[in-house]
Computed example of a mutant assay.
Amino acid sequence: MTEAGIESEPEMEDLLLRIVPGLAEQWQGSTPDEIAQIERIAGHPLPPFYRWFLSRMGQSMGPLSNSTLDFSAQRVLTCYAEGLVVPDPRFLLIAYESDEMMPLHLFYDFSAPIRNDALVTKRDAQGGELYDMFETLREKLARGALFRFRVSEMPQQCKGLVEGAHPDFLSRLDPVMSSLGFTQPIATGRICRLYERPDAAMICDRTPRAGVGNRVTFTLGGSNAGTLRKILGEIATESSLEVLVRKWIPELR
């Protein structure tokens, strides 16, 4: 535990500072008072990861900022102060959506705490149907950064499905990817994996509580189609896994 009760996130910081250009100069954290105000609104201690997030990016996410989603502590506090959102012990607003065509905001769902964090869902400000997004804010942040600054920058990408014979089937993928020289930059849960090596990066995930069985979508980026085919071929040699490629970007000729 560091000062002001903020736990460290060395793996996350290493990943973000390594792959996001200019982040160290541009991210800006909340004040301890802002964090304390949000905790009072929640009515119970904030997840340790969220306290870390606010301490690093609660004023500005720098290059990680989203054009329509505002994660800032000040926006969260303003939404509660103006009555847009009513305090609820189960849900806490963590990002305000400014897109008027689809004004669904991001909330923590504290009924599903996990790994010093909690489930991230989308819903209307006043309530209504939930659209679960990620098991944790940690995975949302890491996945978004890896996709934006590694996968999408690769000359060749492909998307598809990985299916397994066991509920924890992604654990069967780990040794295959390790044998190919990939590392996992952060620890993830049962329905998400992030892999990277110098010439390639891969994201595997699905939405929580989706009920789609032992299946995740994947996005793989690399230096060329041959490299990606080799990676996918090695994954397919694991007898408990099946790989289905649905799209190549750019399309192969």
Rank of each mutant, 00 (worst) to 15 (best):
M1V: 14
M1Y: 03
G5Q: 10
G5S: 07
E11K: 12
M12D: 04
E13V: 10
L15S: 04
L17S: 13
R18D: 14
I19D: 10
I19W: 02
I19L: 08
E25Y: 01
E25R: 09
P32G: 10
D33G: 11
D33R: 14
I35G: 01
I35H: 02
Q37I: 01
I38V: 15
E39C: 05
R40V: 06
I41K: 07
G43R: 07
P48F: 08
P48K: 11
F49S: 06
F49T: 05
F49W: 04
Y50W: 15
L54A: 06
M61P: 05
M61W: 00
G62V: 13
P63D: 09
P63F: 04
S67N: 13
L69C: 01
F71K: 07
S72V: 08
A73R: 04
Q74H: 06
R75E: 12
T78E: 15
A81S: 13
A81Y: 00
E82D: 15
P87M: 06
L92W: 03
I94L: 12
A95W: 03
S98F: 01
D99T: 09
D99S: 09
E100D: 12
M101D: 14
P103R: 02
L106Y: 11
F107G: 06
Y108M: 12
F110I: 00
F110E: 04
A112G: 00
A118D: 01
V120W: 02
K122E: 14
D124Y: 03
A125S: 14
G128T: 05
E129N: 10
L130Q: 12
D132H: 13
E135P: 02
E135T: 02
T136A: 05
L137G: 11
E139S: 08
K140S: 06
G144C: 09
F147K: 14
F149L: 05
R150M: 13
R150G: 01
E153L: 14
E153T: 13
P155F: 08
Q156S: 11
C158W: 10
G160T: 06
G160N: 07
L161Q: 13
L161H: 14
V162T: 13
E163P: 00
E163L: 12
G164Q: 11
G164S: 11
P167T: 09
F169M: 08
L170H: 07
L170G: 11
L173P: 11
D174K: 13
D174P: 00
D174E: 15
D174G: 00
M177K: 03
S178E: 15
S178G: 10
G181E: 08
T183E: 14
Q184C: 12
P185A: 10
I186R: 06
I191M: 04
C192I: 06
L194P: 05
Y195P: 03
E196T: 11
E196P: 01
R197I: 01
P198G: 07
D199H: 10
A200R: 07
A201Q: 07
A201F: 03
T207G: 05
P208Q: 04
A210H: 07
A210L: 12
A210V: 01
G213C: 09
N214F: 12
F218V: 08
T219V: 13
L220T: 05
S223P: 00
N224R: 02
A225W: 03
T227H: 08
I231C: 06
I231V: 15
I231R: 04
G233L: 04
T237H: 12
E238G: 04
E242R: 15
E242D: 13
V243M: 11
L244T: 15
W248Y: 04
I249H: 02
P250E: 06
